[in-house]
């Protein structure tokens, strides 16, 4: 009988061969699934977001938004965004039930009219609050939203990254292709390039200042989105991340949008 150690050594030696049997599409999907699996089980989190819009001339405008997110098993997450700045939209709340390939469900509470409006959310390629982030860039990242292709491995800053291509499967996406750099240790999305419907490079996202929560989950402290075609950019700074705060479905009901401060 061969020793166990020897068997393992043979298997390890064979790994590249086994991996070679995988198509780049299969390997890309495998990485996306692994990243998804890594982030599963966070439960819920709340965070404060400061969004700085920078125009071509370098002038800035700021938005402050509080975010509450609830993980939903077997579907996209539920999230509530509460706007604190600019002052004229203070108290506006946006509730999103994200879904994989189906359009999200979305409601908006407008405090000036005391009115909850269900809004059409099929198109997610529009700018979020006048920024260079589209709604689809900020939505929950479900595996089935894209098809994948593994490109290569390369160092990305202090880490080693998988570089994969993602092709949006969602019919109304504003992109034809994305290239994502995902680190091998914590499946952090470090960088992404977005190509528009004409297949030209539109935007680049760079994420940094990652923090680990619950000893496992990584979240970026900063996300910077440069639009190469307009010269505009947006910096998102995330503060006060708190995980497993006890949020439930009750906190994400459209009828409950009118309450809260």
């Amino acid at each position: 009988m061969l020793p166990r150690k020897f068997l393992i050594a043979v298997l390890v030696a064979l790994l590249p061969v086994l991996a070679g049997a995988q198509t780049p599409e299969e390997k890309g999907l495998e990485i996306a699934r692994a990243a998804d699996a890594y982030d599963k089980g966070f439960g819920d989190f709340t965070a404060d977001m400061v969004m700085t819009l920078i125009n071509k001339a370098g002038e800035t405008a700021q938005r402050n938004i509080r975010i509450k997110t609830l993980e939903v098993e077997g579907d996209g997450d539920k999230s509530l965004s509460i706007f604190d700045q600019p002052a004229d939209v203070r108290g506006t709340r946006m509730l999103t039930y994200s879904h994989g390939l189906e359009p999200d469900d979305q409601w908006l509470y407008l405090p000036a009219l005391k009115r909850v409006k269900r809004i059409s959310s099929r198109n997610k390629s529009g700018p979020f609050m006048g920024s260079t982030f589209a709604f689809e860039d900020l939505g929950s990242q479900e595996v089935e939203k894209y098809s994948y292709r593994y490109l290569r491995e390369e160092p990305c800053g202090e880490w080693q990254c998988y570089v994969i291509e993602r092709y949006p499967a969602y019919e109304f996406s504003g992109y034809t292709r994305e290239v994502a750099w995902i680190d091998q240790a914590g499946y952090r999305l470090v960088r992404a390039e977005f190509y528009d419907r004409k297949k030209a490079l539109l935007k680049t996202l760079t994420a940094s200042d990652f923090q680990q929560f619950l000893g496992h989950y990584w979240r970026p402290g900063k996300m910077f989105m440069q639009n190469h075609q307009t010269g505009k950019s947006t910096l998102l700074e995330w503060n006060n991340y708190r995980f497993r705060t006890g949020l439930t479905d009750r906190d994400f009901r459209s009828q409950a949008l009118k309450r809260g401060n």
Binding site: L53, N55, A61, P86, D88, V89, G126, P127, M129, G130
Partner: peptide, 12 residues
């Protein structure tokens, strides 16, 4: 009958 223009710019 109405038309709504939403510019989605910095100034809303």
């Amino acid at each position: 009958v109405a038309t709504r223009f939403t510019f989605n710019d910095q100034q809303s």
